[in-house]
Each structure stands twice: as C-alpha cells, then as structure tokens.
Design a binder for these strands. Structure first.
Length: 550
RNA sequence: GCGGGUAUGAUCUAGUGGUUAUGAUCUUGGCUUCCCAAGCCAAGUGCCCGGGUUCGAGUCCCGGUAUCCGCACCA
C-alpha cells in the first residue's frame, strides 16, 4: 500500500518509465537501477544543465577517462589502503576494528575467527562477523594473471593523472577547472534507499586547481552578495558568500564560490529551496584526502537530509601522491612579478675525461654530481653503492653563473565539487511531486521545470477527426524538427491525455481543435495553471523555444 | 553483515490447503466526437526463485533473492 512520498514517487517512476530495478526478471540485485525512457532523458537534462554551469559559466574543460583504473593509481591515491580491510565489530561496545590490527600475524583470519581468538581490545568481549570491507570492485586486465585493477570509486583520479597535460592545455595558468561526468562504482555492504545509494552510479565531478597562496576566484565579485543556505549542525542560517568567508565559516573564496555555484545549479534544476542546505563535515568525518568539506544536503520526507553533493578542499593530497609514486612532474609555476636573478655556482662536467676514467659508472656519477651543492671547488666526491669516489679536478669546471628565475614551483591545491547525479534526479522527482484532488480522485502532477522535463510538449487533436489528426501530426513533426521533445497522443479523452502529461511533468500541451480550420490557431495549455492561450501555428516554435530556454 | 516485517498482471490490491486466482487502475481495438483521468462493449497481462509437507500449496515449513524498518556500514 502506498504510504509515503517515496513509495508514491517510486511507483510513478516505475509505472511511467523513469526508474526500474535492474535485472528484475532474474530477481533483481540490490544497488542497481535502470533508467527507463523518461528517466534517461531527465538524467541527460540534469547532466546537461550541470555542464552549462561548469563548462559555460565557470569555463571548465571536460575530459573522459576509463572507468577501469589500474592498481597503481588507486594505491597512490590512498583508496587501496583505505578500502581493503577485514573488519570486525564488537556487539557490546559498538566499535569496529581492522582485523590486522588486533590479531597476530602468524594465524590466519579464518582460523582466528573459528577459534574465537579475536577479542575486543576495549571491553574484552568476543568479536564476531569478520567481514571484508572493500568498497572497490576489483578486476584484472588481460587474461591469465592479468594486471590488477579496480572499477573507479570516483572519476577524479582520471583528472589528476592527466594534470600535467591539462595544465599545459590551460596554458599553464591557474586557476583552471576540469570536469568529468560518468560512472563510479562502490561495492556497498548493504545498499538501501533506492537510487540514493547504488553500487554503480552516475557522478559529475569538477577538480579546480588553485595556487594554495591564492584561493580567490575570478567570478567571486559577481556573487559575493548572494545568500548561502547554511547549517552548523545546530541551526540553519543564511549568510552572504562574502560574510561566510569573512567570518571564516568557509575557509576560502574558492570553496565558497563553488558552494554558491552548486546551490545555484540545484535550485535552477528545480530543487525546493526549503529543502536545501549546506552542512560542514566535522573533522572526524572527513575523507582521507580532504581538509574541509561541505555537503549540499537535500531533504527527503522519507530519509531526512541526504548528501547529494560534496564540496571538498583536497589540498595538494592527490597531486603530491601521484608525483611521489609516478615521478612525473606535476608542479605548477608561480611566476614572480619581476624575474629574479640568482647567482649560482654550477659544475660543468667534462665527460670526455670522466668517461674513460669511470667507465660504466660515469653516467651515474654525472647524475649525482649535477645534484650536489658545491661548496668547495676542490675535493669533490660522490657516494656510489656505498663507496666514496673522489672526482679529480680535471673532470670539471666550476663556473659562476647568473640565472634568471621567473617563478617558483608548487603543487596546486584542488577544490572538488562532486555530485551524485542519481540523487539529484531522485530529489527532482520527490521535490516536484504534487498531488491534488480532482473530483475526489487523486491527481498527480510532476512540477519539473520546463528545462528538466523529459517531454516538453504534448500534441493532441481534440477529437479523432482525420482533419485535426493530420494537422496535429504535422505540428508534432515540425516541433520535433525544431528540436523540441514532443509526445503525440490521440487516445482517450482530452482530459485523460492532459492527465498523462501532467504526471510525467510535461510543461505544455498543444490541442488542435476546429478553430484551426478558421484562423490557424491552436491552444497551448500550461501544466501548472491549466490556463490555455491561443497561438498561431507559425508562432509555436518560437513561443516554446522561448519558454524552454535557459 | 545481524534482527524483524513483506513479496499476487506494468501499478495498487482480495484471496479460509480444494473448480478456470478477486477487484480496480492500466494497455489495445470498437462505439461515443468530447477542453481537463466521462460512459459502454470486447480483449490483454500475474501468485519472486528453489526445495519440502500433502491426494492436492498463491496459502503451511525450510533455504535463497528482492524490498521495507532498526543496528552497523556509507571512505
């Protein structure tokens, strides 16, 4: 029996082709959902609106990288170590532990569990239910042993691993932002709550790279007087973006700017402003890579406040990690206002002397010599394989040079807004779902914005008269050719057809009645007011395009 | 992963171990020619999966799966 809005929304979603449980004919699998025809279109509309905000408004660039990600990347990023622990819980004191931390190395985990060797370090009670907490799906690349890999738990790493190329693409100027829209995978222990927590899910992430000494944003002035909807774990309040930064409630301009962009996006998409807020992560709930994080939370009548967007300051965490493990230079250059001239003593090696003298070690010695700090022009030596090797004076020259230094290297910091698209899609359905009574019967309207609605216009002949049908079909075709998603319908009564469109959020309906034969006009009905206005057929495309534009 | 509830057409739902599984919504065709889910006629689609008990299981039992609630988990 339908009980609350979640049930009603999910019923409607399944019946009308928004969301289906995946693999249902084989019993279904928890954590997987299909988007049907209308759901796919709605999701596309959400993603495309998102792109408008990040690609157009914020001038980001977009990339696409594989969902299968090699071990090395996720090892460096910290995901491997944070994700593959066998954990146990103590039923009594409710603590959970990594098994490796509390048992001896010389017994296997299975054995330890069987023999009750695992005891709670805090209260001494027996621990049970050891289980693998590995939120990444693993796979192998190639046949046989193959190469270890995972399905990515976030799209971000594909951006970080290309940083040096993208930095060049952006003409070596900061800040610049890179986005990726795609699937992420987390092998959740027990996914629930429908599409709000899936094992395969759509994400839209932006990684914006900043100079850590300058976390300002070029568009900040334009939005600094706008209000942010904030929550400090006690009360909800509003502050302008500027105030939030001044009062240090939000650490820096960049973070605050992307919070506002996120708020603007969600409200434009049709999220109910009364069911929206930002909540700051407490220090102990921060992800391993984050130094500050704000969640955009949306309110569900069933589930309460749900995180839909995380906006994190990842600092230099990821780039540092990839520099360390790959050896690739992913630094950025901070240019000085004026190039500085630095006097340097430099060693110039005479390889024609060193070669014959050191033979196969010459190359390595050269590398070492180029790194050392030269204090004494004489008595130069290096340590190779534990042996000290003196380098005779005839092997090199010390020259005094003046070098122009144009800037200093640093590792950029990253601000990351990360969106769970499936959650946004669900909330658009829940927040826009409305029920009214019509003649005592329940009447459902999905008040999606015209921009988000999967179908923009219903096109109907008032009655099945062939003349009207032909004209209506013609109008339908013209609108489609003009790029407007339509739905032609001549089945059932006119009221039923309006009702069908209202239920899937179609904002407009065009009805062709007999007046078309006199003055070439049709009626255009507005979903929310049910008011109609007459329009000449030749005005339709322009009229609708105007209503549907962003 | 633990404990509890639930599972009947696309959706909602009735069903006491015993004929061909109830009703509604829905979909399709026909009549009606109509501006907000009208009516009439006809048709269509279903007992989550696997075992067991029984002469006989949608119904009882066991296991699985899905889903809901609570706990844990959600970097």
């Amino acid at each position: 029996m339908p009980q609350d809005i979640y049930d009603k929304v999910m019923m409607l979603a399944k019946r009308r082709g928004f969301i289906y449980p995946s693999f249902e004919i084989y019993g279904g699998v928890a954590g997987f959902y299909d988007y049907g025809p209308l759901g796919s279109q709605l999701k596309n509309n959400v993603e495309n609106l998102w792109r408008r905000f990040y690609l157009l408004k914020d001038n980001c660039i977009e990339v696409n990288t594989p969902t299968i990600t090699i071990y090395d990347v996720l090892k460096s990023s910290g995901h491997v170590d944070e994700f593959t622990d066998l954990t146990v819980e103590c039923k009594k004191c409710k603590r959970s532990y990594k098994v490796e931390d509390i048992i001896d190395d010389d017994i296997s985990v299975e054995q330890a569990v069987k023999e009750d060797k695992i005891k709670c370090p805090t209260c001494g009670k027996k621990l049970s239910d050891a289980h693998q907490v590995n939120l990444m799906f693993s796979t192998t690349i190639g046949i046989g042993e193959g190469r270890k890999a995972f399905l990515r738990p976030e799209t971000a790493q594909g951006i970080f691993t290309n940083f040096h190329l993208l930095y060049r693409y952006s003409r070596e100027k900061l800040p610049f932002g890179v986005i990726q829209v795609g699937k992420g995978y987390r092998n959740e222990i027990s996914p629930r709550q429908g599409t709000l927590r899936q094992r395969e899910f759509a994400m839209a992430e932006a990684e914006i790279f900043f100079d850590p000494d300058d976390k300002t944003h070029p568009n900040f002035d334009g939005i600094k007087e706008r209000e942010l909807y904030l929550f400090d774990n006690e009360k909800e309040f509003k502050l302008t973006v500027q105030e939030a930064v001044d009062k240090k409630i939000i650490n820096n301009q960049a973070l605050a700017y992307y919070m506002y962009l996120t708020q603007d996006f969600l409200l434009s998409a049709g999220v109910d402003p009364k069911k929206f807020r930002f909540r700051k992560h407490a220090p102990d709930e921060l992800a391993h890579y984050a130094t500050e994080c704000w969640d955009a939370e949306l309110y569900s009548e069933r589930f309460g406040w749900v995180e839909c967007v995380g906006i994190a300051d990842r600092s230099a965490y990821d780039l540092s990690a990839h520099i360390d493990s790959s050896g690739i230079d992913m630094h950025a250059l901070r240019k000085f206002d004026e190039p500085k001239t630095i006097n340097r003593r430099k060693i110039v090696l005479k390889m024609n002397v060193m070669g014959p003298l050191f033979k196969d070690k010459a190359g390595k010695i050269k590398e070492l010599l180029e790194k050392i700090d030269i204090k004494d022009a004489k008595n130069i030596s290096v340590t190779l394989d534990g042996k000290t090797i003196d380098v005779p004076e005839n092997c090199y020259e010390i020259v005094e040079t003046k070098e122009k230094v144009t800037g200093e290297k640093f590792i950029p910091h990253v601000i990351e807004p990360s969106y769970g698209i499936d959650r946004v899609v669900y909330f658009l359905l829940e927040h826009n779902y409305a029920e009214i009574k019509k003649k005592g019967e329940e009447y459902r309207i999905l008040k999606l914005t015209p921009q988000m609605a999967p179908i923009k216009v219903g096109v109907f002949p008032l009655i099945g008269d062939k003349k009207l049908v032909d004209i209506a079909k013609d109008i339908d075709k013209n609108l489609r050719n003009a790029g407007v998603e339509t739905y032609y319908d001549d089945g059932g009564t006119i009221g039923r057809r309006y009702a069908r469109m209202d239920e899937i959020g179609t904002p407009f309906c065009i009805t062709v009645d007999h007046d078309i034969l006199k003055d070439n006009t049709v009626t255009v009905r507005d979903r929310d007011t049910t008011k109609q206005q007459r329009k000449k057929t030749e005005e339709l495309v322009e009229f609708l395009k105007n209503k549907l534009s962003y």
